[in-house]
Simulated scan of single mutants.
Amino acid sequence: MTELELMARLVIAGILGALVGFEREKRFKEAGLRTHFLVAVGSALAMIVSKYAFYDVVHTGTIELDPSRIAAGVVSGVGFLGAGTILVQRQSVRGLTTAAGLWATAGIGLAIGAGMYIVSICGTILVLVGLEVLKRLFQPIISKVHKLNIHVTSNEVIVNILDILTSQQIDVVSYQVTVISSDTHTHYSIDFQLKSKKTIKDNEIVKLLQVLPEIERIKFD
């Protein structure tokens, strides 16, 4: 195995990892192009070291090594890295897709490091299909969850807010009210989890809610 071919494997791994990272980058995710690039290159390098770096001692006849041990450590290492991208915010979990993408990118890098070019390219295509195409394909039949935060001066307006949301065929999965007290008056922060099979246009929802005088602030996610 020549050094030039091993270097080419690192380059190919970086390119494939960057393709996955670019998809995450344009969606403003925690781990983007550079992170996926580094994961793919690092995984490929670990596989190359694991597979080829010990030939000088293995062929002595007295030492036997498992060439998969270093590569197996990559899976655990990337698991810790992926855990850092998972965020728990109130009652929702975010970052699972990005964490899975990092794990898949590590697998792509390992396969490139092992010389499995066709399998790696196929794996990259499937990952991109899973991240980009499947969401658009099943979006019409899968309800999407949105988050809505509203600050109001009276908790009695909650009934009116619910009426407006349901009139737009939006299901309220749950809502949580937090009381914010001060020396002068009391405010209420309401966190809604909404679900709808159709696309929710945040500007239309905001226009409908703004007619309620008790509402001070609206944040739609």
Rank of each mutant, 00 (worst) to 15 (best):
V41Q: 00
L65D: 05
A13K: 02
A72H: 07
L19K: 00
L33F: 12
P67H: 02
A53L: 15
E25T: 05
F22Y: 14
V49T: 12
G61N: 09
R27T: 14
A31P: 10
G42R: 01
A31C: 10
A13T: 14
F37A: 09
D56W: 14
P67F: 08
S50L: 06
V57N: 10
G42Q: 00
G77N: 04
G21Q: 10
G17P: 05
G14C: 05
I63A: 07
R27H: 15
I63V: 15
L65N: 03
S50G: 13
F22A: 10
S68Q: 13
R34E: 08
P67Q: 03
A44E: 04
G73P: 05
S50D: 05
A31L: 08
K26G: 00
L16G: 00
V74K: 11
T35V: 04
V20K: 01
A40G: 04
E30I: 14
G42V: 01
V75D: 12
T62R: 02
K26Y: 13
A40F: 02
G73K: 13
G77H: 10
V58G: 01
E23R: 01
S68M: 10
F37I: 03
S76C: 07
V78R: 08
G17S: 06
V78T: 11
P67E: 10
V78E: 02
E23P: 04
F28A: 14
G77C: 05
L45T: 09
V41T: 09
A46G: 02
E30T: 15
E30L: 12
L38Y: 06
V39Q: 04
I63F: 10
V58D: 03
S76R: 11
F22Q: 13
A53S: 13
Y55N: 15
Y55H: 15
A44T: 07
G17L: 03
R27Y: 12
A40P: 01
E30W: 05
G21E: 06
F54Y: 14
T60E: 12
G14F: 01
G21Y: 04
K26C: 06
I63H: 06
